[in-house]
Amino acid sequence: MIHRRDLLALAACGVGTGIIGARPVFAQERPFRILMLTFNGETEVERGFRDYLTDFGVRTEVIVRKVGRTQSDVAPVLSTLPEIAPDLIYTRGASMTLAVVGPYDAPNPADYVRDRPVVFALVAAPVQAKIVRSLERPGGNVTGAMHVVPVPVQLRAMQSYRPFKKVGALYSPTEQNAAAVVEQVREHLTAIGAELITRNFQTGPDGMPIADGVDVLVNELKAAGVDWIYLVPDTFGSTVLARISPPALAAGLPMFGATEMAVRQGGALVGLVSRYYAVGQLAGAKAMEILVARTPVRDIPVGTLKRFSLIININIAKKLGIYPPIEMLNYAEVVTS
């Protein structure tokens, strides 16, 4: 059994920017203008981002644009940058961030935003996705906040709840973020003598993933003998959780979530997660370093939270008949959504 001190005893959010203490008042000639790009409206992540800046007395003018996650989706908005003239661009997720800044080794950098600071939130593997060159020194015009708990820690939590030999995963191989996490899971499972079995979402004529056949994929994982389905932090996958959960429940397969949404809304039994609001706060701290402290973006490390939450969906536990170990209830948050 993994214990609370091993799982949750990392220091509190501690955004670690060096800009901490009592709420200061900054001399600003005008509010900082932030272009906020989201694909499904504002969430707890964006609320945390806004609140962090407000709580530190930073005046902002936030211009929200709801866009898709591909370069062609964001191009119309980016064409208005000279008119909007933002001091900073906020993005959520790996796909959208790449659509804005491109991979750092893109052959045509002029196709992307390289002349303004960009702060991302909810990117699981920014180095593997080629958003930044390293976590410690991003090296370009983009930094931000990661949200996925280290894979080995997630797997220990999963094993503590219910031992496994085989773990299944559904993901979009075209999404660099998801593919990078899948490879980390595969590596760590192999190291402990377990197996990862994957299935890819189908794609439409445009090469983008679609939800068709999700129930078939879940049943294939069941037939392959998986003990868990690991819900990869996949941007598309997060939009079809309602299609994944019913066949998984019908097959008696518990799901482990890498994100807060997967447990609260997506039918996962349990997850070890970074809270979305805190991830937004951390992204806000990065924005503050850029806008207030005037730290060069290339020198601002990509951040990750130091405190995680173990969340158990007790309604899913009842439906599956798979209940948590008693000790786990001493430190887990139990939800009934």
Rank of each mutant, 00 (worst) to 15 (best):
I89C: 01
G204F: 11
L282N: 03
N108H: 03
G271W: 07
G213H: 15
L7D: 00
R4V: 12
L155E: 02
R116C: 10
P150Q: 01
P24A: 07
L231I: 13
G21I: 13
I2D: 12
M146R: 13
G144L: 03
T54H: 10
T235P: 02
D215W: 14
D105L: 13
L310C: 02
R298K: 10
T190K: 12
E44F: 05
M146G: 13
G267E: 15
V279Q: 04
V127N: 15
S160K: 02
R186E: 14
T143C: 11
K306I: 01
I244H: 12
M328Y: 15
I210S: 10
A12H: 08
C13L: 08
F120W: 07
V77A: 12
A223W: 05
K130M: 12
L78R: 06
E46Q: 13
I312S: 06
I322E: 12
E289C: 01
A278C: 09
A125M: 04
F49Q: 05
L269M: 13
P126L: 00
R275S: 11
P76I: 05
I34D: 06
T143W: 05
P150E: 01
L310G: 05
F256P: 06
R30Y: 04
A75W: 05
V334Q: 14
I322P: 15
G41F: 09
P246D: 07
P86N: 11
Y230A: 11
I314C: 08
G252M: 08
G144V: 02
Y90F: 03
F49A: 08
G93S: 07
V58T: 14
L231P: 02
A179P: 00
P163L: 07
D215E: 11
A22M: 00
E187G: 11
R33F: 02
I63N: 13
L231G: 08
R162A: 09
I326H: 05
